[in-house]
Write a protein that binds this DNA or RNA. Sequence first.
DNA 1: CTATTAGATGTTTTT
DNA 2: CATCTAATAG
Length: 683
Amino acid sequence: MFPVGPASCDDLLEDLNDEQRLAVTQEDGPLLVLAGAGTGKTQTLTTRFAWLVREGVAPERIVLVTFTRRAAREMLARAKTLLGPGFQGELRGGTFHSLGYALIRAHAGALGLSVRFGVLDAADAADLLDLLREERGLAEGERRFPRKEALASMYSRWVNAQRPLSEVLVESYPAHEHYLEPLADLFRAYGERKRELGRVDLDDLLLYWRALARHEVIGPRLGAMFEHVLVDEYQDLNALQVEIVRLLRRDQRGLTVVGDDAQAIYGFRAASPEHILRFGDDFPDATLVTLTRNYRSTQPILDLANEVWAGAARSYPKELCAERDGGVAPQLVYNLDQAQQATEVCQRVLALHEEGVPLREQAVLMRAGWHSNELELELARRNVPFVKYGGIGYLEAAHIKDLICALRIADNPQDQLSWFRLVRLIPGVGSVTARRALDALQLDTLSENGALADRWWRNVEPLLKPPSAQACAPLIRALNLGSARVPVTELVTRVKEAITPLIKAHYADGLTRLRDLDVLTNAAARASTLDAFLAELALDPPSSSADYARDPQLDDDYLILSTVHSAKGLEWDAVHILSASDGLFPSDMALSSPEGLEEERRLFYVALTRARRTLTIHVPVRYYHQPTSRSDQHGYGKPSRFLTEQAEALCERHTVSFDRGSELVTASTTAEVVTVDLNGLWR
DNA sequence: CTATTAGATGTTTTT
DNA sequence: CATCTAATAG
């Protein structure tokens, strides 16, 4: 049944164990590799890639599909390394969304899209929904209509789940169930408007891709582009993505998927571990290979992970077994509150650093981005360099969006959505004038061609008071350069300079915002074309504060702060888990359904299994319900429900003495007191 | 119609 | 504590 690998002396296969070798050298049929955490999943997949090439498959006839950008980057880099320096070409691969983008771009005509279609990122999509909501008078109801972010997530979930809207509402948004009709209308209008504007959102990248794959002529042609499709993190696929994979492999040959149902953490995007568990139903000829030998962590860490996983409602036994010797028990630290937790984490990070574990071999993981707020302050205070992944909204900042919209107009003056935003930046212009301007632009769409920013501006200008209009003249001149053949660097610089005074005037804290603009313009200037840069921004936004801002001090050594979601697939010598208390991790937002709780458990499991040697779990005993409010309302939080008695028994427990906490007159404590006093005085 | 301000409100995770 | 909304002053 399993053809055994050809040459055991092959250096490619030398470093692999028997299970891995079996997976790598599998012949043509559909192959499912169930790979537990730390069992060499990525290595197996990339080695399989190299093995296929050695077997005579052309590299460009293999495509590597992943779910996250970080994973895509890493996998392609490793595959390229395995092919050796002799290989010069580009490998085919990327995230579902980026591959979708490329295919849609290539077949824009068949889909009825302009080649210049632009991609709406999540915030753009929400803005457009908001615009439509306002237009349709849904904002003024007796009961609250969902706000834009909620609308965007409902829409996305509906599309990705591929199920009737009514069901999605009942299951995931019961509070808004009674809005079924208006929501359906709104979403329909949203689809139409996107089409009119020539824009696609992130979900469309999958929808259009599927449409192409379903097409009777184009579909088979897409499938024939590749002899092998390799899919990573299969447990995180949703129904739409699974269908795309199936359509690409209509003959059921040349498909390899890897994943781990214990690490499925994207339920909120309508992903479901059911797809990987039912892989055999979708692909009846599938071969299953299971990887169980863990090369990452020491046994005490795996013992805890196994214990947590054993508590899962539908647990398939999955005992991870360490190949690595020795190890110490995970540390479980009870802190008084989150402030003390921050202090404690800092101290432990620095202590490990003293012992020779570099900062970049340590990571602090948390359920939600804001959980690290206090820690970030503490780290900054102690001059500990760090980079935070996930949970940052650099691109969402209003002024950044302003600049991006200006660049989009420079690239494509017909971009009405961007005009709508940019015009409102002009003093004396609000949403009403902006909408009129938009109408004027729409009327003009068909009359002439040669769409220069200039010509569009002529429609807007008469609606403004003369001084306001004049203030924009430099900006319009800069935008016009977009259609001239000006190098990207110059264009971007000119646009930035022209928009600077507008931004400074429009925001109360204008001056501080200006600094952020440079970061973006520098990045844009490095891009080959403006077009490419803008598409990349939607598909591949900077995921950390360090992506664009190369702070020189960061080049040496820095601590990683990351959400668990962003930490997937990565590993560190030392891992510190933050705020493992009920309500935070598991998040109380997820506790309304049993599936939600199960996903939180998997998330916790993922966090635990990132650690190689040292694992520390922090529990703040007391936490504030509204971390943001000044009120002293707090609950005595229970430790995370995943830390059962049996689990705790596998850890070494510490209680940070409360006395010590109050004796420590840290700067943060002092600052707090002073703040409270001042607030009293201001009243 | 826009700008300003007081008041309410609601907080994950990613492409 | 932002950030969004509704109410009001200009």
